[in-house]
């Protein structure tokens, strides 16, 4: 029983850790896509932010400076996206793909140029990473059966960014449902003409949505390189930005379902890591590959087969012109 509980707790805490970048990216995508801007550049923004975080954290020996630069870089990339697709009404997919290419190439180029370690950044010392947060009364609680270990090992003991990610979900919900900005943001993704005729600037609103997303994306990047790992590795986002987009669609562009979709994907990934050595009788190497590909395969299956019609924001992907 004790052992089973600790196995479950291990698996679930790994799920939480793995789902953080997905949640942050998914919410980032939620902001931009609900405002009517397809955001396929999430992956690239997160990757570049991860690089910026690692490089700055190394340089200044501070995780917080790393986080600041991560957000800064994500904001700049989002502004490029906004400039191309909002101000100049370009194709949002092309602009997003361009961001992904820029990030994929430039991070490695800069890493090689600055650190000469084959596209990595130097290993960060513990001081330059986000420390573990230990919640109060952990030791006192530990002796309580069931609840104790859950509190101590599943709820407490992560770095601060994980808590930020989970707090971001209800905050996003609240912003969307209970604030003026949220109302307008939801409106501009459905019918920008309604916003425009109400006397509100469509472009500025969309820029603000992009900036909100950029902050979240920056945090996701910093989490990858400064919290989860201790440095940047090339392509370390490994498609998580795309997974987050898939989760966003799976969640039908709603904040709380985004959380659950991301937890599901995180859980699948945690499972695949846990059972990496599981032998399907196909030889160890092949079995590992199968297990590792499971989360991605399941993503496809879930998206294709197990969801009803997802109705995307109606104005998504369409540049707004005052044409009448």
């Amino acid at each position: 029983m004790q052992e089973f509980l600790s196995t479950v707790i291990l698996l679930l805490s790994s799920t939480l850790r793995l789902s953080v970048p997905l949640i942050l990216c998914g919410l980032a995508g939620l902001f931009s896509e609900r405002s009517g801007l397809w955001d396929i550049g999430l992956e690239g923004k997160m990757l570049f932010a991860a690089f910026a975080a690692a490089a700055a954290a190394y340089q200044f020996d501070s995780a917080w400076v790393g986080l600041f630069f991560a957000i800064l870089v994500a904001v700049l990339l989002s502004l490029i996206h906004g400039f191309a697709s909002v101000t100049h009404q370009g194709n949002q997919i092309i602009s997003g793909v361009a961001i992904n290419f820029i990030s994929s190439g430039l991070t490695v180029l800069l890493a090689v140029g600055w650190f000469a370690m084959g596209g990595r950044t130097p290993q960060l010392q513990p001081e330059a990473r986000f420390p573990t947060v230990v919640l109060p009364f952990v030791e006192e609680m530990r002796s309580v059966p069931v609840i104790g270990p859950i509190y101590a090992d599943l709820i407490s003991g992560y770095n601060i960014l994980l808590y930020v990610a989970f707090a971001a979900v209800p905050i996003t919900w609240w912003v969307f449902q209970q604030t003026r900005f949220g109302l307008r943001l939801r409106a501009v993704g459905e019918n920008p003409a309604a916003v425009d005729t109400a006397g509100i600037s469509v472009d500025w609103l969309r820029y603000r949505a992009l900036l909100c997303g950029a902050v979240l994306c920056g945090i996701a990047g910093a989490y990858l390189s400064v919290a989860q790992s201790a440095g940047f590795v090339r392509e370390m986002s490994a498609g998580k930005g795309y997974m987050a987009l898939a989760a966003l669609i799976f969640a039908k562009w709603r904040p709380v379902p985004v959380l659950f979709a991301c937890l599901l994907f995180g859980f699948l990934e945690a499972l695949s890591i846990r059972f990496q050595a599981f032998d399907f009788g196909l030889g160890a190497a092949l079995s590992t590959q199968i297990v590792q590909s499971l989360p991605y395969l399941l993503t496809v299956v879930l998206l294709a087969g197990f969801m009803g019609r997802a109705i995307p924001p109606k104005a998504g992907g369409i540049p707004y012109t005052k044409d009448r």
């Binding site: 409106a187 019918n191 003409a193 109400a198």
Partner: peptide, 18 residues
């Protein structure tokens, strides 16, 4: 009409005049 179709009537009316 310049209405957001999936909004409630109330939301449509206060949009921009909050």
């Amino acid at each position: 009409f310049k209405l957001v179709e999936n909004f409630t009537v109330l939301e449509n009316i206060i949009l921009g005049a909050e």
